[in-house]
């Protein structure tokens, strides 16, 4: 117990960084996942193939491997930018890797949402003269997002926990802090695990509560 109190600042810093990872990677995943799903359901065969390939490659590759790959690849490509000492090179790399990984799952959650919308909705949109893009953005996606809230929540919960993989390339997020404490304290490890577990559980709980709120909001407008 004492170990948690003594290192509260370190633990908090770790979780703050975890939250930043979650936020930025989550935004990337949302934007990229939406674009991917537009490819996946596009009337153009080539676009569908691109979308499907992305999903198949990214979803079937272990996240750790993707993070390592990006960590190794970017310097080779001559990219080692960092925005500040806090948002440093490894943080940016991990954010992009996590975002691109989660995007595949966001895409599939949205696709399930789209498939749950009756085809008549798209037919009505098209028969009004809407282009594919207009029908997607004004008719299909708003409804698909609602239908996709539960699977999206699962995706974001998984992403919250997956941010811990960033420790592999030295991002000082929560799991990194936990590893550090475990190295420094031979005793009290159960407390350390317990403390960090509570931290992650709180984040997951917040995501679930947010999703629940969104669902209720969406339920009202019907």
């Amino acid at each position: 117990m004492q170990v948690l109190i003594d290192n509260f600042g370190l633990i908090l810093d770790g979780f703050v960084k975890t939250l930043w990872l979650l936020l930025f990677a989550g935004l990337i995943a949302l934007v990229l996942g939406t674009l991917l799903v537009a490819l996946r359901v596009s009337p153009v065969a080539v676009m569908r193939a691109v979308g499907t390939s992305y999903i198949n490659v990214v979803r079937n590759t272990p996240l750790l491997l993707i993070v390592y790959l990006f960590g190794a690849l970017f310097p080779v490509l001559g990219y080692t930018a960092s925005i500040s000492s806090y948002i440093d090179y490894s943080f940016i790399t991990a954010t992009i890797a996590l975002g691109m990984y989660a995007a595949a799952f966001v895409c599939e959650a949205l696709r399930a949402g789209i498939n749950s919308i009756p085809v008549g909705q798209a037919e009505a949109a098209r028969s009004l003269g809407m282009t594919f893009g207009q029908s997607m953005s004004t008719v299909i996606l708003p409804q698909a997002f609602r239908a996709a809230i539960p699977p999206l929540a699962s995706t974001y919960i998984a992403l919250a926990k997956n941010t811990s993989v960033a420790l592999a390339i030295g991002v000082t997020e929560a799991a990194f802090a936990m590893k550090k404490l475990n190295n420094e304290y031979a005793t009290g490890r159960s407390w350390i695990f317990f403390g960090f577990a509570v931290g992650y559980i709180l984040i997951v709980w917040a995501i679930a509560a947010f999703a629940h709120g969104l669902e209720r909001q969406a339920g009202k407008a019907r």
């Binding site: 009756p118 008549g120 909705q121 037919e123 009505a124 949109a125 098209r126 028969s127 009004l128 003269g129 008719v139 708003p142 409804q143 609602r146 407008a221 019907r222």
Partner: peptide, 16 residues
């Protein structure tokens, strides 16, 4: 298509 109105058996009003 904008010049052709269509009415469906199942209405297909935009639910949202």
């Amino acid at each position: 298509r904008a010049e052709v109105g269509m009415v469906f058996q199942s209405f297909n009003l935009f639910a949202h």
